[in-house]
Structures are given as structure tokens and as C-alpha cells.
Amino acid sequence: MVLSMDRWAGKVAVVTGASSGIGAAVALRLAEQGLRVAALARRKDRLEELAKKISSKEGKIHPIKADVSKEEDVLNAFKWIKQNLGPVQVLVNNAGIGGNGSLLNGDADDWADVFRVNVLGLCVATREAVKSMRENHVDGHIIHINSICGHQIFNFPESSVYPASKYAVTALAETLRVELNALKLKIKITSLSPGAVDTEIILQNLKKILEEKQILDSEDIADAIVYVLSTPPHVQIQELTIRPVVEAL
């Protein structure tokens, strides 16, 4: 199998939750690979700072202020992308928030926020990306940033409905694959499930548990995404789990 990013040079990639952590690392790495990255996040000032870090002559980061929990924001972002950048070739659904509290004492509004971002926001962005790909006859690639919590329940302090939201992402990735196959579309779907990653989303009490163990960096996940995108058109990495060699979980 020959790995190459050549097919994506100059193409449009959308990365949600791109203002920090995994999203920022992915946006930078894809731009460095020559892609034109539409970086979506609520904190546009951070996106603008990120865009200044690009040294690639071909790649570029385009900051777009958008809250993926609001459908109108996502629709407006994809409208801007269509008018200013062109067809979407790659979507990285990275935006996500963690749990807060437990199921026994949690707040329903907090639970709803998790599902609006981690599940519904992902669904809306996916729908719009696939719509763009189909309209423009693009054999694109959708990547969901999932979690090992989307496959196994751990004793995470105050994780609340977060694992449930990630189990939903696992199901959504497979449901999308089945739908794409039924339509005979050559759009790839990958569910990428990291272990513990040193990002803003990780709970402080969980970070204390992990502090003497290995923990992944955001750049490790960016490297994994480049690997997935580098596969030949006939190869689909359906599920990829990436975790530290020595992990407390």
C-alpha cells in the first residue's frame, strides 16, 4: 500500500473545534500538507492566531467563527466555504465537550449541551459536507474524532453522559458507512478513537490520575489523521484506535 497526501493538495478540508487541542493540531498539519483548511470554532481570535503559524506556501487556514451546537452557524459556515473556497473534500468532526457531574446529580441542560455538540453538531456538519461532495462528484473523506469511551465504559470521575455521546459517534460512523455504500458513493468514513489526550477537554481530576502515566499529544492524533488520509482511494480505515503504550485506563 502506497501512502500519499498528493491527492489532497490544494483541496478544501473543514475542521471543527479548531481553536485548540486536537482541532488546532489537525488544522495546522493539514495546512502544512497543502490543504486549504476551513477552521471552525467559537473563538475566532484563536483561529486567527493559528492561521499566522502556517509556513506552507500552498496550504492556508481560513478562520470561521461557528458554534457547532447551533445549526444555523454550521449552515452559514458551509455556505461561506462554498462561495469562497469551493467543494469540501475532507471533514474532520473534532468539536466536542466533556461531561460535568454524574448521572445521579447531573443537570439536564448540561447533558443536552454535550449531545448538541458531540452528536447533533457532528451530524449537521456531516450532512452538509456529504451534500457538498455529492453535488460536486467528490470522493471525499469524513473523519469523526471519537474516543475509547465510545467503545468501553471506564470509571472516569464525573464523565456523566460523555461516554454515551461517544457511543453515539461509533454508531453514527457505521450508519453513515452503510448509507454511503447503499448509494454506491466512494466517500470514506473513519472513526478515530484516541485514548487520553492532553487537551482542554480532559478533566483536571482525570489528569491527576494520569499524570504519572503516558498521555497522548494532539500532534499524535494529527499524525494519525494524515495516515488515514494518505491511504489509496480503495482503502478505508473504518476504525482506528490510538492510545499510549503505557496507559492507566
Rank of each mutant, 00 (worst) to 15 (best):
A39M: 12
V37D: 08
D73W: 10
S19I: 03
G121H: 02
G99V: 00
K82W: 06
W111A: 14
T16Y: 04
I54K: 08
H62L: 13
V15S: 00
A129H: 09
K60C: 11
S132W: 04
V117Y: 03
L40I: 08
V119G: 04
L75C: 11
F115G: 07
K52L: 14
Q89R: 11
N100P: 00
V88T: 12
V26F: 08
E72T: 14
G106K: 04
G23R: 02
V92L: 12
A13L: 11
V117K: 01
K52F: 04
S20H: 13
L91R: 06
K131I: 08
I64A: 01
L104S: 13
R36Q: 15
G59P: 07
R116I: 05
E32Y: 07
V92F: 11
L47W: 05
A24C: 06
E48C: 03
K131T: 13
S102C: 03
K52M: 11
K57D: 14
V124T: 12
P87A: 13
D113Y: 08
V15P: 00
L50V: 11
K70P: 00
G23F: 03
G21Q: 06
K82D: 14
E49K: 15
P87N: 10
A24F: 03
I97L: 11
S20D: 13
R36I: 15
V130T: 06
E48Y: 03
K53A: 14
E32S: 14
S55H: 14
K79F: 06
L40E: 02
D45C: 05
I81D: 02
N118A: 06
V119W: 06
L50K: 08
N93F: 11
K82M: 01
W80H: 11
K57T: 14
N118H: 05
A39N: 10
V68S: 02
Q89C: 13
I61K: 03
A129E: 09
L40W: 02
L120N: 04
S69W: 05
I61A: 03
N76L: 14
D107H: 13
D67R: 12
A41G: 04
G98Q: 05
L104N: 12
N118M: 06
A112S: 14
L28K: 14
G17I: 11
D110T: 13
A125D: 06
V68A: 02
A125V: 09
G21K: 03
G99F: 00
S20C: 12
V130A: 03
C123V: 10
V14Y: 04
